[in-house]
Amino acid sequence: MKINGEDVAGFCGTVWDYLEQHKYQVERVAVEYNGEILQWAQYQSVILQPDDVLEIVSFVGGG
């Protein structure tokens, strides 16, 4: 699978698992999953597959 433009091999789990493992603050992220925005409620049900393309944007405060 491809995550943020990098090839990732050997990851097994949901989007939620990936975010947790990589210490993302879930309430601060937006995730594009195969070209579609994924809602927070879907993070725990989507299991990542080898040809998935994921883009994770993590926001910081300030405006």
Partner: peptide, 16 residues
């Protein structure tokens, strides 16, 4: 917006 969670919320909501 200034709050990081509010930014994420707006993007998640509007990009649908």
């Amino acid at each position: 917006l200034d709050d990081a969670a509010a930014k994420a919320m707006l993007i998640n909501t509007l990009l649908t």
